[in-house]
């Protein structure tokens, strides 16, 4: 198994940084997540340790129920682990209160869901503006940045359409624009192409690749090998544990699936 260029600086970063190792964005230390108790206890994650550095583009794979979503939720600060430590961009997240976590979710993390989760009653532009509402960014600035984000995902012609007037791929692109609009350090996506056909999947992957090229750290959960092959690193989960943290995409076919 190859460790995919873990210490190499990214092409996009300027030469000054070449000598400085990339900072760690995600540091999971023996993270466990246990649902229920007694006989019904489920260990969704058991002592997972993981490092993801800035600028990486990773895919999390594993069988259904292996704990991928649970891990993503912990990484995305949507859920708290039962035990273990989690440092996001150097900050100890486990110690934070609800208010601080909301701030982290708002500023440091962009989340893309399989079911898009757009607000149906408002336009694409307003959906993308929403995270900035919670960041207290003034309205004109908000509109400008949301427009830019939608341009980045190629939807500058659909600013004022409501989600119901957009295709699945377009809706997911709106969701991506919403995730990146606050310039997070980390973009998380849980099966972002799970509800899309192969052509629109390619569009979405293209956007992710572009975002990664421009320096964004991207972690996504997927079941599809073609999707995982577009990333630079595959993390394999099995039974709530990381069984392979640094699988190179070209070696994916050799990896054993449970």
């Amino acid at each position: 198994m190859t460790y995919h260029q873990p210490d190499n600086p990214l092409k996009t970063q300027n030469s000054k940084l070449k000598t400085i190792p990339n900072p760690v964005i995600i540091r999971l230390e023996e993270i466990s997540k246990i649902y229920g108790s007694g006989n019904t206890e489920v260990r969704a994650l058991s002592e997972v340790s993981l490092l993801v550095k800035q600028g990486e583009y990773c895919a999390i794979m594993g069988a259904s129920g292996s704990g991928k979503s649970t891990a993503m939720n912990v990484i995305g600060c949507l859920d708290r682990p039962t035990s273990g430590r989690y440092y996001l961009d150097g900050q100890d997240v486990a110690q934070m209160d609800e208010q601080a976590l909301a701030h982290i979710r708002n500023r440091k993390i962009g989340f893309v869901f399989q079911q898009f989760h757009l607000l149906p009653q408002v336009s694409a532009l307003e959906n993308v503006m929403l995270p900035m509402v919670y960041a207290s960014i003034p309205l004109p600035e908000r509109r400008r940045r949301a427009t830019t984000a939608l341009q980045r995902v190629g939807l500058e012609h659909r600013l004022h359409n409501k989600p119901s007037e957009l295709s699945g791929g377009q809706q997911q692109r709106v969701a991506i624009a919403r995730a990146i609009v606050n310039q997070p350090v980390l973009l998380l996506a849980d099966e972002p192409t799970g509800a899309l056909d192969s052509r629109t999947t390619q569009e979405i992957l293209h956007i992710f690749a572009e975002l990664n090229t421009s320096g964004m750290t991207v972690v996504m959960v997927t079941h599809e090998a073609e999707v995982a092959r577009c990333t630079h690193r595959i993390i394999l989960f099995r039974d709530g544990q990381v069984v392979e943290p640094y699988l190179a995409p070209e070696n994916l076919s050799h990896a054993i699936f449970a």
Binding site: L78, R105, F111, H117
Partner: peptide
């Protein structure tokens, strides 16, 4: 419920 979850996921605090 879903809308509330989404809002929280993108950074709305309890007080928001």
């Amino acid at each position: 419920t879903q809308e509330i979850g989404l809002r929280k996921a993108i950074g709305a605090s309890q007080s928001d």
